[in-house]
Simulated assay, not measured.
Amino acid sequence: MGKAARKKGRKKDAGAPKKVRDVFVGQPFEGLAGEPELIALREFVPSATAPLTLATESDRKVTLGTVLPMAAAAFVRADGQAFLGMQVQTRSSDISRDLGRALKWALNAEPGDVLSVADTITPPAEGERLQDLLDPKAELETTLHKDFSWWLPEDTEPEGEVALSLERANAAIMPTERLGTGAYWVDAGERAHLRWVRPEPETWVLQALARLSAAGELGLGEGSRYAGSFRAHGLLVPVWDLDREAHAREWAEPAEQLGARLNKALDSLDDEPLNTAERRARDGLIGRQLTLR
């Protein structure tokens, strides 16, 4: 290659846009008060909605939904009500950015518009994550639904693909009850479960669970047992197997008592390190972990 050609090539390279590195975000909802609820709605709650509190004033209200028709990223109903979907078809390395882009779309879309897939390709930019668009201190006020009729305005009959999607979605719903922030009773068929998204760092939660386990206080009473835990979007989700013959409300008080014991164990970690038995219990708990991304 001649000198002129090399010089021309250098000029072309110098003017080329810089490639932005897309880094995986392991805890995409960090900093939001609703983090445990967001993870629960993303991972295992079948049909639920929660109004979003935006960081700035907007004429349009947006409601967060677990699943939208055809697993869309967002849509605006014929009556102008906008919805943002948590359980979607695709994702990038940063779920918060995906949701933020879909939220910005929903704020400006017309009634009847549907965003099938959020933009997961465009390089990151400032001000497009949920942390930028939502009030970070606002808790999510989640409402559970027995079906997906909330997809449609009142007194509206579903048609075409929406009707088929609604029928399939309704058929897949597992009975679910909310027992507290990030804590859900789910009837999975052969047995029921309590899945509890904990907001504390994983290491702390494991140590607190180990302390309860060593003391024989890790269960919710007769008909329950600690099953293990999984990681989801940076937080730990302990899971208990429950006797499904007992109604969800019968586990509400035991879950509240367990939460109090767990909080007490968490508070004790600053002053009292784990003893030998508790460390063995922690090692056993670590062996029963899975990771969801």
Rank of each mutant, 00 (worst) to 15 (best):
R10N: 13
W251E: 00
F29C: 06
A14W: 15
Q87G: 08
P238L: 12
Q289H: 10
L292I: 08
P153S: 04
L220N: 03
P51N: 04
R288D: 03
G259F: 07
G223T: 06
L107V: 10
Y184P: 02
E167N: 14
L133R: 09
V45N: 01
G160N: 01
W185K: 15
V205L: 03
S93L: 12
S116A: 14
L64V: 11
L107C: 12
I39L: 07
E128D: 06
D113S: 11
A50C: 05
A265P: 08
P201W: 00
K61Y: 11
T181Y: 10
E159Q: 15
E141N: 13
D271E: 06
A248F: 02
L290M: 14
A125S: 12
A48S: 09
F29K: 08
G15A: 14
I95T: 14
R42D: 05
L266H: 08
R211F: 05
P158W: 02
L115C: 09
W240P: 08
Q289L: 08
G228C: 12
A40E: 00
E141P: 13
V23F: 15
T90P: 13
L41H: 02
P158R: 04
A248I: 01
T53F: 09
G189I: 05
D119I: 06
K264H: 14
R244C: 05
T66Q: 07
E177I: 07
G221W: 07
R279F: 10
T203I: 02
E256H: 15
V62W: 00
F148V: 09
A172L: 03
A210P: 00
R249D: 10
D98G: 14
A71L: 14
A232E: 03
A255Q: 05
E202N: 10
V88I: 05
A4K: 15
Q207T: 11
G180V: 01
N263Y: 07
A246S: 15
P158Q: 01
P111Y: 03
P17K: 05
P69V: 00
A260G: 01
R198M: 11
G216A: 02
W105F: 10
G31H: 04
L103C: 03
Q257M: 05
R293W: 09
W105S: 08
F83H: 01
R10M: 13
R293P: 06
W105G: 08
L206V: 00
I95E: 07
W196S: 05
F148N: 12
E250S: 15
V197Q: 12
D155N: 15
D187T: 02
D119N: 01
L103G: 08
R168V: 11
V23T: 15
A232Y: 06
L206G: 02
G26K: 02
L134C: 00
D147A: 03
E177F: 07
P28D: 03
D59P: 13
V239C: 13
P123D: 00
K7E: 03
G85W: 14
L52K: 05
L134W: 06
S47T: 09
P36G: 00
T122V: 11
R168G: 15
R191V: 14
M1V: 07
R293N: 11
A125D: 12
G127F: 05
A138Q: 06
F75S: 09
W105T: 08
T203V: 07
S268F: 06
G284H: 03
A265V: 02
L107E: 09
A215W: 01
G160E: 01
P153I: 00
A50E: 09
A5D: 10
E167L: 07
N263W: 04
L115F: 09
A50H: 10
V20T: 14
